[in-house]
Design a protein around this nucleic acid. Structure first.
Lengths: 279, 279
DNA sequence: TATTATTACGTTAGGCGTAAAGATT
DNA sequence: AATCTTTACGCCTAACGTAATAATA
């Protein structure tokens, strides 16, 4: 049976050209390498080298063997990585959400209910989340509506409603409600990492430019010191944050969503536990 | 670094369910298996088993590990097979021909010129031969004309001209030449393993049925005892074989071909050597 | 009691390094 | 003389099997 260490030594020899150099690099003695190469030739059952009097080199077959060896070594390394990753995934609940707000309440709840598990989350493209839940690369998805799929369960979780903050002298400030289409053309402040909200704004307000702020502090600075419109929701609304602004609800259907938890039907336990916390 | 033997033992354990059974099947002792499995867990760095008091079984991660292990073992086995095959291919000249006749003269010539090499040949689909020459899965191809490809050399080799043998009282027996189209509709005797000729007949004579004979003896029996037309060529023509028949040349361009040897340009030596024998 | 996993232990084969030899540049 | 491969030799690790232990069905 092939020995991966010997294969690695073979690859090292191929890289460094001589047994001596390879031995030096691998921190072993040259005789060891000689023996390994002889053993490899026995294993493969064919000549891999041309044995010059003072020079060992790969023949054509040897080069082929090196190709297969490198592939095998890569596979082997990948195998342990994948197994470790799989093991880790058994101890983690990975949540993929289309927006950050539902995570604020979900993650603490999960941590409390599953103290032995690592809770991990990330924002993901709305089109990929269902796929990832189904192929088991994540446990729970959060979508802005129920998933129409036999393989998964959808559970209404929390509602988020979008509003826009306008300066009092803004042309639209007197409206009691507003649509994104009406805002189209006005440049807006926007936070980064707000998931599908970003996509929604760009789709409904194609004529607008968005000044995306990564840093929370800078965002607030700009929000208070400029007259640019920006958005808040019922889940992300602080009193001092909208001071001096008119807060007008956005009436678009898509801007008032009920986030749903999505999980594979085999994981009914999520349903029970969530019901207990959010009856 | 992973040890393939241990991986094999892991797979054996997965197959047989207990260490004892696996040890028995692999002709090693149970303690050895115990140690191997412990060592594997160290290598992977994660738990692969649930250690019951009197029962060892794979956990979910272990099952995954078995999957990767089987894949790795298959790859390893395949690697030595492929390397051996490659080594063998270096000592063989594989000829792929679209028809058998040119092989009759080429193979003996090759054997004589390359006595240290194994000469191997097979009939192959006319559309694949050029590909195989180019991707080095064969050394020499034989096509019914030159190959229009920069990567290969084409050398005219031998000409084969098709004739049909008709009984003297056949409706077409008085023709001095004939086309396959004229023969269309008449059922014919045909040998098997005649390469592209078979394809040609079926294409040009779609209304005919062909009685394909695998056995040479049976073919001759039917040829002499029936009135069915059959084909001969200048390269496959024996006097007693056409006794009592009218031999009429087939005038179709495609039925009168000059076979060309096709080989990669790096193999100019074939050109010289063939010139020496067939100037 | 029979089966199974695991630990303990003694033996041994095989792998490694040092040293030396042979060969080349 | 320096570099490189290969052989020879001795040491020592580590892998194996036997035997013992423990636990189960």
């Amino acid at each position: 049976m092939l020995n991966l260490c010997e294969l690695e030594q073979l690859c090292a020899f191929a890289r460094y050209g001589t047994l001596s150099k390879a031995a030096e690099e691998m921190h072993i003695s040259q005789p060891t390498l000689t023996r390994s190469m002889q053993h490899l030739e026995e294993e493969f059952g064919v000549a891999l080298f041309v044995h010059g009097k003072n020079r060992l080199s790969l023949n054509e077959t040897g080069e082929k063997a090196v190709e297969y060896a490198t592939a095998l070594l890569a596979n082997a390394e990948n195998a342990v990585l994948q197994v470790r990753r799989f093991d880790q995934s058994l101890r983690t609940i990975l949540v993929e959400s289309c927006a950050p707000a539902p995570l604020w309440s979900l993650l603490p709840a999960l941590s409390e209910q599953f103290p032995e598990k690592t809770i991990s989350s990330r924002l993901e493209d709305i089109r990929l989340i269902l796929c990832h839940v189904k192929d088991k690369s994540c446990e729970i998805g959060i979508l802005p509506g129920p998933a129409e799929d036999e393989a998964v369960e959808s559970l209404p979780f929390v509602r988020e409603e979008l509003s826009v903050c306008l300066p009092p002298d803004h042309a639209l400030a007197s409206q009691s409600s507003i649509t994104l289409e009406m805002l189209n053309g006005y440049n807006c402040l926007l936070k980064s990492d707000i998931g599908f909200w970003s996509e929604l704004c760009r789709k409904r307000m194609p004529a607008s430019r968005f000044l995306v702020q990564t840093d929370e502090f800078e965002f607030r600075e700009l929000a208070s010191s400029s007259t640019l419109p920006y958005f808040v929701t019922n889940l992300a609304l602080e009193a001092d944050f909208v001071k001096g602004r008119v807060v007008i609800p956005v009436s678009d259907m898509e801007a008032n969503v009920t986030f749903h938890l999505i999980f594979r039907k085999e994981n009914r336990n999520y349903q029970k536990i969530m019901r207990r916390r959010f009856p």
